[in-house]
Design a binder for these strands. Structure first.
Length: 274
DNA sequence: CCCAAGTCCTGGTTGC
DNA sequence: TGCAACCAGGACTTGG
């Protein structure tokens, strides 16, 4: 599940690999991952253009090209990006392939995504429009406990549901939501507006801490997540809540429970999280 | 059959 | 009453 730390890991690796490489050829193997209008313009917009430094906002990967053309990639649930030199060997889950050239050298970049939740957008003069609708980046963005509290004020939806709402903070998904709520000692089902100042303060601190830890660990390799070079992150070894239902709470020993919030499996400690 | 997941969409409810 | 904001739940997808 690529969430903010996983996408950040991909971004940092691409930053070391793709700037200066030029797109020589594009193959879109899964047309449905693009809007029809952009699909028709893809080749013309990107061919012959050179990658600059990749960016990221929340879970969106922002890939600027020369000429102010931008690719916006969302990895969805199982998307991964692989970059390699040598011969490209096709794979049934590959959704698009860029052939790259630089001073006579050749390489390729492929987007591989078994479950087809990934999306590719292309446009001029900036990232895709929907990136502007996101809240501040949960890791590096300009927000604090006060601004978060304002956005939660009066809301009756469960706090976990609002952590998953990318318009409030961008980048938190199911894993880091459960981990942050555990760290902060807040029950995931609490109506968001009932959190007091101290609780929002703890939650804000927990979010920054857990996301920082995830980035430092190079992401969390549960399910399908792997790095651009096929390597794996280590955050999965540090998980204290996500999918730990039935196991003892590492803090108090109580049995962790599972429930469903916002349609997502949610693990929590019924004693520590109140 | 259920479960996993991120985002978008729909339909119903709430509250000003 | 009208309207916007809000909230819950389904659709999409495929492998385990």
């Amino acid at each position: 599940m690529p969430e903010l730390p996983e996408v950040e890991t991909i971004r940092a690796q691409l930053a070391e690999m793709i700037p200066g490489w030029t797109i020589a050829h594009v193959r879109l193997l899964e047309p449905a991952m693009m809007a029809p209008a952009e699909r028709r313009r893809l080749r013309g917009l990107v061919r012959g253009r050179t990658f600059a430094s990749p960016g990221r906002h929340g879970k969106f990967l922002l890939l600027p090209l020369t000429g102010d053309v931008w690719l916006t990639v969302h990895l969805g649930m199982t998307g991964r990006i692989l970059v390699s030199s040598g011969r490209y060997v096709s794979h049934p889950h590959d959704r698009f392939v860029f052939r790259l050239v630089r001073e006579g050298e050749k390489a390729w970049l492929v987007f591989r995504d078994p479950r087809k939740f990934g999306r590719l957008e292309v446009g001029e003069s900036g990232p895709a429009a929907r990136v502007a609708l996101l809240g501040p980046d949960a890791w590096l963005g300009e927000w604090d406990a006060e601004s978060l509290a304002r956005r939660l004020q009066g809301r009756t939806a469960p706090i976990k549901a609002l952590l998953l709402d990318q318009r409030i903070l961008a980048g938190v998904g199911n894993i880091y939501a459960d981990e942050s709520l555990f760290e902060a000692g807040i029950a995931p089902g609490r109506p968001a507006g009932t959190l007091d100042e101290a609780e929002v303060g703890r939650l804000a601190h927990a979010l920054r801490l857990i996301l920082e830890r995830g980035v430092q660990a190079l992401g969390c390799s549960v399910a399908d997540f792997v790095h651009v070079d096929g390597g794996m992150g280590s955050m999965q070894q540090e998980l204290r809540a996500y999918r730990r239902q039935g196991q003892p709470c590492v803090r108090c020993g109580a049995t962790m429970l599972r429930t469903v919030i916002a349609g997502r499996g949610t693990s929590y400690c019924p004693v520590c999280q109140t």
